[in-house]
Amino acid sequence: MIIERLSQEHRNIETLLAVLEHELEIFDRGDHPDYEVIRAIISYFELYPEIYHHPLEELVLAKLELRDPAAAASVGNLRLEHKKGADRLHRVAQAIESVLSDREILRQNVDNIVRDFIESERRHIMIEERDFFPAALKALRPADWSEIASSSTNHEDPLFSEAAEETFGALRQRILQMEHESEVGRR
Score class of each variant (00 low, 15 high):
51 I>G: 08
136 A>N: 14
105 I>M: 09
181 E>N: 10
5 R>S: 04
94 Q>W: 01
69 P>N: 14
182 S>Y: 11
39 R>E: 14
43 S>H: 09
119 E>D: 15
174 R>E: 13
166 E>Q: 04
185 G>N: 10
183 E>R: 13
58 E>R: 11
53 H>Q: 11
163 A>T: 07
159 L>F: 03
80 L>Y: 08
140 L>D: 01
133 F>C: 00
104 E>T: 10
164 A>H: 12
154 N>G: 10
136 A>S: 15
60 V>T: 03
79 R>A: 04
6 L>K: 01
9 E>V: 03
24 L>R: 00
148 I>N: 04
130 R>V: 06
160 F>S: 10
92 V>F: 00
56 L>C: 12
103 R>M: 14
130 R>D: 07
124 H>Q: 07
182 S>D: 13
38 I>H: 05
89 L>D: 01
173 Q>M: 14
51 I>N: 14
1 M>W: 07
114 V>N: 10
151 S>Q: 15
123 R>W: 11
21 E>P: 00
151 S>P: 03
34 D>G: 06
48 Y>K: 10
116 D>L: 12
154 N>Q: 14
121 E>T: 05
131 D>R: 09
121 E>Q: 13
42 I>W: 12
161 S>D: 11
78 L>M: 12
28 D>G: 05
144 D>Q: 06
181 E>C: 04
18 A>V: 02
171 L>Q: 08
172 R>L: 14
20 L>E: 00
86 A>T: 03
50 E>Q: 15
5 R>T: 06
178 M>L: 15
119 E>F: 14
109 N>Y: 14
48 Y>W: 12
12 N>G: 05
126 M>W: 04
96 I>S: 01
173 Q>G: 11
108 Q>V: 11
148 I>M: 07
112 N>Q: 10
178 M>S: 09
107 R>A: 14
37 V>R: 05
68 D>C: 04
125 I>D: 01
142 P>I: 05
162 E>L: 13
57 E>T: 06
155 H>E: 15
6 L>R: 00
25 E>Q: 12
4 E>I: 00
170 A>L: 14
136 A>C: 15
119 E>W: 13
53 H>C: 09
177 Q>A: 09
136 A>H: 11
72 A>L: 13
41 I>T: 05
153 T>F: 12
50 E>N: 13
166 E>G: 06
68 D>H: 07
185 G>P: 00
116 D>H: 09
152 S>M: 14
83 K>D: 06
122 R>E: 11
38 I>K: 04
31 D>T: 05
145 W>S: 04
